[in-house]
């Protein structure tokens, strides 16, 4: 049987190969925190973390995730117990309608790991070294998550606060 681990619990994968990872999470596992925006990999609302990497759950078939470990927004925090990133989004008004926010938070969490691993980006001056963390770097690295309310500058402010308060090895588990 094909199975995947979601937020620490193993689940059998759906029998219909057409089921996307996103629809499986939302409709079969009743984890509606992950959002369906464009459903075509253009908006990032469906971002989840698979084996430590952020990806668009709308563009993947659930059956391709046998053996994978998947983290959704439900595992990152709750209304009673917000994660560091979520608190920073609240502090900085990093959202208005909130629809893109679960994807933004998942993306930001994985971004911190990428920074911690020394990954370069398209705006890094010298890609052979670990890039300095600048506003421009953060904007580039969050460009896969659209916010139609336009909270971008506040989202970046939230990330800057978390990165300032938590050295990267801690930020990665924020």
């Amino acid at each position: 049987m094909l199975t995947a681990c979601v937020n620490g619990t193993d689940h059998p994968l759906p029998s219909d190969p057409r089921r996307t990872l996103l629809d499986w999470l939302r409709d079969d596992l009743a984890l509606p925190g992950t959002k369906k925006g464009c459903d075509h990999g253009q908006c990032g609302a469906c971002t989840v973390i698979v084996d430590g990497r952020r990806m668009n759950s709308c563009l993947s078939l659930a059956q391709l995730h046998h053996g994978d470990s998947i983290e959704t927004i439900e595992s990152i925090g709750s209304a009673d117990k917000l994660s560091v990133l979520q608190k920073a989004f609240v502090t900085h008004d990093g959202f208005q309608c909130g629809y893109c926010t679960p994807g933004q938070i998942c993306s930001a969490k994985a971004l911190m790991q990428e920074l911690s691993d020394g990954w370069a980006s398209a705006v890094s001056d010298d890609i052979t070294v670990t890039p300095a963390i600048t506003k421009e770097e953060l904007r580039e690295r969050m460009s896969g998550n659209l916010c139609r309310c336009g909270a971008y500058s506040n989202i970046i402010a939230a990330l800057e606060e978390v990165l300032a308060d938590h050295p990267l090895h801690e930020g990665a588990s924020a």
């Binding site: 990497r53 952020r54 990806m55 668009n56 993947s60 993306s107 398209a122 890609i127 896969g144």
Partner: peptide, 21 residues
Amino acid sequence: QSWPLLAKAILAGASPQLRNR
């Protein structure tokens, strides 16, 4: 280090989420 053109081109494309997949 040695083929930075390839890394730069990849990083110029898509989004981090898509590049992971």
